[in-house]
Nucleic acid binder design. Structure first.
Length: 426
RNA sequence: GGAUAGAUGGCCGAGUGGUCUAAGGCGCACGAUUGGAAAUCGUGUGUACCUCUAAAGGGUACCGAGGGUUCGAAUCCCUCUCUAUCCGCCA
């Protein structure tokens, strides 16, 4: 959510800024028209409320003869007031709906562009491997090592689901453990959260009203399945008035994540890249309302994720996401992509975003500064690690000619010291 | 699932139809005191919005949410949500 007063005072700048995200500038004018109309109604209905209150208050001290006339007049004003209130409620709903659809302003640093083709590679880290044998893709590797039950589980749970076994299942959990330990070392509080959410948090996060199709909904209980712990963590402190000394708040949230993948029909239909349910360890930060401060945290979150990929010894690239490819809530976004040999390209493993105060305004998450001023917090989020997707580059990159998979040194303690996994390593 | 009790400002907590413009306390800010601090004393201190403005001011709403009764609701009525405790069930 944006600040309507700021929009009113800086209309030209706002139009220019939002148009970088593909938002039509005329909609800003439409919004302001509704805003001014709403204020007019507010002013006149408040005047009626004032009169009504004065009349009511005068009744107590009025004489018995005066009373009936005052009561009659008060009733009259009360009815006018009620009529205006109804109009006001209508226009307020309209206004709020428009406000919920306003995207965040993009950073000046973010490259301009209409879609992902304009994203900019900021750097590449690690070497893309050259195999002296014919490398297998992750599906083959799972088959020859008897690591999965992909066909059977499809019969049970449908498409885009997965069941992995033995060393690979242990690997999935081990990677999360490594990331959680790392985040705790960086001062994050580990928190496991539900995947069940009511509707309001989805608006708070900024998923709604934009992408209802992507979310599992359970009508019997009127609840949704969360696509990320960010959803839950963003609303965990909703409506709170924090103090400046409470900040920053750092959460490492672990949860199952559910996505309908409605818009991805035909993409990545096999294997572990894109599934309806997965596990994610999420980084979430609540900090002061200061772009310098949240930018600092943005870089920090990015650095932590890069460390994760380095610990896993995966070559990756850092992508600066352009204005048109960013979601509505975002001020600035980096994606990390790890190299997937079978696809001969980098695939997204992490998405690191600074939301500034856009979510906190929806969530009504504020703090009282040491100067006494009340301000909205800034929020940021980034993937810690998401599996099974991260297993795809992992097993493909670390595979050996005999089908076994090498385990990087940093991860070995989490796998009981194993240096290699796979059928031929047993 | 059954029963009971609750939800009031940053926090605790009083308040059963009209000076509630929400007592009191804590916290916080400023001042006095002090060599400095603690303690103490004094003063101030909710949020959002509208309007007007150079500044000040004026006004409206908000006591879990939504409806209702009334000239007037934190207070009475209805519905809902959430929380706590006990019982039942359960990984």
């Amino acid at each position: 959510m944006l600040d309507i007063k700021f929009i009113a005072d800086n209309t030209d700048w706002v139009k220019k800024s939002l148009s970088r995200k593909g938002f039509e500038p005329e909609k800003v004018d439409e919004l302001l028209n509704v805003y001014y109309e709403m204020n007019k109604l507010k002013t006149s209905s408040q005047a009626l409320a004032e009169e009504k209150n004065k009349l009511s208050n005068s009744i107590k001290s009025a004489s018995a003869e005066e009373r009936p006339a005052i009561i009659a007049r008060s009733r009259e004003v009360g009815e006018q007031f009620k009529a205006e209130q109804e109009q006001l409620a209508e226009i307020q709903t309209k206004f709020e709906d428009m406000m919920l659809r306003m995207p965040n302003y993009p950073s000046a640093e973010s490259p301009d562009g209409p879609d992902d083709s304009a994203n900019v590679v900021r750097r590449k880290v690690g070497e893309v491997p050259h195999f002296d044998f014919v490398p297998r893709d992750h599906i083959e590797l799972m088959e020859i090592n008897d690591w999965s039950e992909m066909e059977r589980i499809a019969k049970v749970s449908g498409s885009r689901t997965y069941a992995i076994k033995d060393d690979l299942a242990q690997l999935e959990l081990a990677i999360h453990m490594l990331v959680m330990d790392k985040l705790r070392a960086h001062g994050f509080t580990l928190i496991t959260v539900p995947a069940i959410s009511k509707e309001k948090p989805l608006y708070n996060q900024g998923y709604l009203p934009f992408a209802r199709d992507e979310i599992y909904y359970m009508p019997a209980d009127d609840v949704y399945l969360s696509g990320t712990a960010e959803l839950i963590l963003n609303s965990l402190r909703a409506d709170e008035m924090l103090t400046e000394n409470d900040l920053p708040i750092l959460y490492a949230g672990f949860s199952p994540c559910f996505r309908r993948e409605a818009g991805a029909a035909g993409k990545d239909t096999r294997g572990l890249v894109r599934v309806h349910q997965f596990f994610k360890t999420e980084q979430f930060v609540i900090c002061k309302n200061d772009v310098k401060e949240s930018e600092k945290w943005h870089q920090k979150l990015l650095q932590i994720s890069e460390e994760v990929l380095q610990d896993l010894e995966l070559p990756y690239q850092v992508l600066e996401v352009c204005t048109g490819d960013m979601g509505a809530p975002k001020y600035r976004q980096y994606d990390l992509e790890a190299w997937v040999p079978s696809q001969n390209c980098y695939r997204e493993t992490h998405s690191c975003s600074n939301i500034t105060d856009w979510q906190a305004r929806r969530t009504n998450l504020r703090y009282r500064g040491n100067d006494g001023k009340v301000q909205y917090c800034h929020t940021l989020n980034n993937t810690g690690i998401a599996t099974p997707r991260a297993l795809v580059p992992f097993i493909e990159i670390h595979q050996q000619a005999d089908g076994t998979v090498k385990i990087p040194a940093k991860l070995q303690p989490y796998l009981g010291g194993k240096k290699v996994i796979g059928k031929n390593a047993r």
